[in-house]
Write a protein that binds this DNA or RNA. Structure first.
Lengths: 258, 258
DNA sequence: CGACAGATTGAGAGACCTCAACCAGAGTGG
DNA sequence: CCACTCTGGTTGAGGTCTCTCAATCTGTCG
């Protein structure tokens, strides 16, 4: 796109050097290798507002998107109009991998919050890969990791109860926030209850009820999008993760410590 | 299938030239580029019997596996021991992508039938990628396509009814068989009802009941693993695919033609 | 303040699961 | 050849987890 920075209050001259997510950005070496053509291969971070779309199913594929800040969801729409969220993504993560295969984006991507996103030309990344094995390895590892995440999502949707799904989701959020240097127990969710449901294959009401029950059981406290985990071990046990003194009643629903 | 007509005693000298799936095999150019080291980078096809494992979760990653013939399933085991099948794979398909990210296989893979499989050293493929952009593109496209398939699976598990799941599954099988030059309506399933259930997030009983109902409705006839699709359009409508004169009752279950 | 979207809570319904019995075909061994 | 076993598939009855429908509540925004 343009380097002129009209749309965006962000400084178009922001250097990749100082970017907070550069260590996980596929474009980082592009800056070093082809600084003169930077504008061509990797636009300046653009700002998306809540609800803005990065791309939609069927859009022709040009770029991967690297998230500098904010939160993005990707989703599919079923024939009868229902929305299934495929993933929530945050700073440092890259989206758009599915489009590589056939030149079209295969899901929709929209901002959950105001987000700063770098568009990275896939053509440029490909070129870079020819010379930089590191970049190539990073790209392939990124897509590979995504397949693992999706497979685990399939396990969750295919086999887990509502309690397990919500607990797993919270633990996952906790992990991500922790990785990014935030508290592992004081979560600030960027998505609505509705979106949590659309992600976990549950209705809003079920999500709400489960959270309420978790709160009643002392596993967490909640206030809108602020979730404070009070008992990580309990959540782990409910989620069915090992390491949480896992104990699942043979008959079904996970039980809390008596 | 086999070039020589003999199923078992595979000749280690089998040439990639004559391989039936060479057009979709990542290793195909390895033969041409490094024929002298072929045995090192790409073993001869090995035969796996029903139930044999190609790899398990946690095994250290060395190779991708290209299916020459037969059928493979990949699966995960949940904390409480339930098996969720992630995918069924047939001739020409490559598995093991998830292991690239962190050097360990992240799912289990086992043969559903006697299968002929080529192990392709990932290290060798990587090396080849440095010189062959085509191979690289193929590798990346393969993984990318897998993320798309997994995302669609998530949509199925998160949003679809048992009827829709089974219908989608049958249509998918139909498509694959058709691609491979077989009938699109006379299906020979390589997996058990139990495995279909483990794939679709349903119990065996539900799968069985749905198939029985489809048969009663004239959409198909079944005999063990032989499924003959009698009305493709009806199946498409049930699956909720466009192009099948889609009509879904607002309240829920898809209806058949009256 | 009124309108509105998001979240919560309740009551009832339904799709799928669980438990259980029964059946069919493929081996196995006497 | 015929029990016998065993695995996989089908069918039935009943239970329940989650959904649907609906009402209420809360914080936000104009």
């Amino acid at each position: 796109m343009s380097n002129s920075g009209v749309v965006v209050p962000l400084n178009s001259k922001i250097s990749c050097d100082k970017c907070g997510v550069k260590q996980s950005c596929l474009g980082r070496d592009l800056c070093a290798c082809e600084p003169a053509r930077l504008g061509e291969i990797k636009g300046p971070p653009r700002l998306y507002r809540r609800g803005d779309h990065l791309f939609r199913v069927g859009d022709s594929f040009e770029s991967l998107y690297v998230i500098r800040s904010g939160a993005i969801k990707t989703y599919l729409i079923s024939e009868d109009g229902a929305e299934q969220i495929i993933g929530f993504y945050g700073p440092g993560e890259t989206i758009g991998f599915g489009a590589i295969a056939n030149g079209q984006y295969r899901c929709n991507a929209t901002a959950l919050d105001t987000s700063s996103i770098c568009k990275v030309s896939f053509e440029a990344v490909s070129r870079l890969c020819d010379r930089s094995p590191d970049t190539l390895r990073e790209l392939i590892r990124g897509i590979s990791a995504e397949t693992v995440r999706l497979a685990e999502m399939i396990l969750l949707l295919g086999k887990k109860t509502a309690d397990q799904r919500v607990a797993s989701f919270l633990l996952s959020q906790s992990g991500h926030q922790h990785e990014r240097g935030y508290s592992a127990t004081a979560l600030t969710l960027s998505m609505s209850r509705t979106d949590i449901g659309r992600y976990l294959g549950l209705t809003v009401e079920t999500v709400s009820r489960v959270l309420t029950r978790f709160q009643a059981q002392g596993a967490l406290t909640k206030d809108r999008k602020q979730i404070r985990i009070r008992n990580l071990k309990t959540l782990r046990r409910i989620a069915g993760e090992s390491g949480g003194d896992a104990f699942i009643e043979p008959t079904g629903r996970a039980t809390l410590a008596s």
